[in-house]
């Protein structure tokens, strides 16, 4: 593959932004009530009739914004973690934050906390993610090697998964069990501005922590020793990526459930278009993640799923074959 010019990269960013715009408009048009583009645009500025205004502004917009943020987070952190760990199989789940957030949510469902507040499940999930972050910091703070981080993540993930199994094992009734399973399959359904207010700040802080990590990730392509001798502070880089990921992904999982494959597949999709340079993958992966999440959310609303098709399932059904196809196409250069 030839080196990608700045023009080609900009074209990709413009193309992805265009796709994102189309996906957002489509997402605001389709649903239980189908709207025309002009209705959506009028409603955005409060110019349509009350019912349509509510559908667009109160029901669809928070869902769309959350979907964009979640998709962008998963795509960006997937690309950043793969660069940091120098492993194309890494995804945000590897550091244990997704399963810890799921554990928090499942615990909230078990305890019936959602009866007290609609924010109980995402709130507990967020707590789970933050506890995981603290444990990860404790386990890996002395020795900040990549291996320690991965092993600490695997350990945290295993404990959280064990906890989830235990709670499901003792689920008080089949309805609770169904709620837990459905929550873990991921969804953007019925998300409100409250969800956005809960998760948004953590997601944005996570993003801010990861701004400018591309140069360090590029240098890491040569190995950690060479990166150090190029003036990269590796300890700082690791913590920025790991903490940024735990905060933003933890918040994402808290309100959307555990949605797999975006973090794993999207960076590969972008690599097939513009090559392997870690820095160049970051922004396009965020945009492509947002497009994919928004598109998948539209699919969950199609009649084919009888209103029960979950976002995580759609992502897995699309993601897994795409992943295999990309690996098949790029296997030559992966040697």
């Amino acid at each position: 593959m030839k080196s990608v010019s700045r023009l080609q990269q900009n074209m990709l960013l413009i193309g992805l932004s265009g796709l994102l715009l189309v996906a957002v408009l489509a997402s605001s048009m389709f649903g239980a009530v189908n709207l025309s583009l002009s209705q959506v645009i009028e409603a955005l500025f409060g110019g349509s009739d009350t019912g349509v205004n509510i559908i667009v502004q109160e029901l669809r917009m928070p869902r769309i914004i959350l979907g964009l943020m979640a998709g962008a987070t998963l795509g960006y952190t997937g690309a950043a973690l793969q660069g940091l760990l120098r492993n194309p199989l890494a995804d945000p789940g590897v550091i244990g934050v997704s399963s810890s957030a799921s554990f928090g949510a499942v615990a909230a469902i078990y305890l019936g906390l959602s009866a007290y507040s609609a924010m109980a499940i995402p709130g507990m999930a967020m707590m789970g993610a933050l506890v995981a972050t603290l444990i990860l910091m404790l386990l890996a703070s002395r020795d900040s090697s990549v291996l320690t981080l991965i092993l600490a993540g695997v350990g945290i993930s295993s404990i959280a998964t064990a906890g989830i199994s235990l709670i499901m094992n003792f689920a008080p009734n089949p309805i609770s069990l169904q709620d837990m399973i459905f929550w873990m399959l991921g969804s953007l359904e019925n998300r409100t501005y409250d969800d956005l207010m809960l998760a948004g700040p953590f997601i944005i802080v996570g993003w801010l922590m990861m701004i400018g990590v591309g140069q360090g990730l590029n240098a890491l392509s040569l190995g950690s020793e060479a990166a150090h001798t190029l003036g990269i502070d590796l300890k700082r880089l690791r913590w920025r990526v790991v903490l940024g990921t735990t905060l933003s992904v933890g918040a994402t999982v808290s309100v959307c459930g555990a949605i797999g494959f975006i973090g794993l597949v999207v960076p590969h999709l972008i690599r097939a278009l513009i090559g392997y340079e870690p820095r160049k993958l970051l922004l396009p992966s965020a945009l492509a993640g947002a497009v994919l999440m928004t598109a998948a959310d539209i699919l969950t609303r199609l009649p084919i799923g009888h209103g029960q098709l979950r976002l995580g399932v759609v992502m897995a059904v699309i993601g897994a074959p795409v992943f295999i196809y990309i690996i098949f196409k790029t296997r030559e250069s992966m040697r």
């Binding site: 593959m1 030839k2 080196s3 120098r86 400018g212 990590v213 591309g214 140069q215 360090g216 590029n218 240098a219 890491l220 392509s221 040569l222 190995g223 020793e225 060479a226 001798t229 190029l230 003036g231 990269i232 090559g275 392997y276 340079e277 870690p278 250069s333 992966m334």
Partner: peptide, 26 residues
């Protein structure tokens, strides 16, 4: 470094470009 490892299939030019890292801000 010994063995000069490279973890991603970058082009030769982009690999050499990494040598300019200390001269550039992030």
């Amino acid at each position: 470094p010994q063995g000069a490892p490279i973890h991603w299939p970058l082009t030769a030019e982009r690999t050499v470009a990494l040598g300019r890292t200390p001269h550039l801000n992030p």
